[in-house]
Every structure is written in structure tokens, then in C-alpha cells.
């Protein structure tokens, strides 16, 4: 299944957003995730189902004024 993660296409087997993070080696309790433009809190990632063409954003703290 092809999905778009942070603007790049990935071929993944993950059925949920939580599995996607594990499969692609995104780890850490500082990550924020959005699925098709909607915020997905960490506790809900296991229930967020992935489908062909889904767009995922995985963000992390960065400096900036």
C-alpha cells in the first residue's frame, strides 16, 4: 500500500498509524501526528486505520521564534 508521509511516497504494510510509525522507525514521545489533515493524539494512533493514498504528517520540536 502506498502512502504519503511528510510529503514522500512510502510502500508500507502497516494497518494503523501506530504500526506505520514502528515500520518506518519513527520513535519518541515528542512526535506529533496528523492523518489526512486531522490531528491524531498518541493514544489514538493504534485506532487510526491506514488506507491507500493516505497522507501522514509526523512532526517534531524545532527551534524558532
Amino acid at each position: 500500500m502506498k502512502v504519503i508521509v511528510n510529503g514522500e511516497a512510502w510502500e508500507v504494510a502497516a494497518a494503523s498509524l501506530a504500526e506505520l510509525l514502528t515500520e518506518l522507525d519513527w520513535r519518541g514521545d515528542w512526535l506529533a501526528t496528523a492523518h489526512n489533515g486531522q490531528v491524531v493524539p498518541a493514544g489514538e494512533r493504534a485506532h487510526c486505520r491506514m488506507a491507500e493514498g493516505d497522507r501522514v504528517e509526523i512532526l517534531s520540536p524545532m527551534k524558532g521564534g
Partner: peptide, 22 residues
């Protein structure tokens, strides 16, 4: 202190290290 959010690379730890610092 202001902070931002940006895309993290797979396996990236920079965001976590920065957040610990803050």
C-alpha cells in the same frame, strides 16, 4: 521560549534532543 514543529526524518532524534534541552 518559543518553539516550533517541523517534519521529522525516519529514525530522527534531533527533535527529542532539542525538546529535552528546552
Amino acid at each position: 521560549v518559543t518553539v516550533s514543529l517541523r517534519r521529522e526524518s525516519p529514525g530522527g532524534r534531533a527533535g527529542g534532543q532539542f525538546w529535552s534541552l528546552v
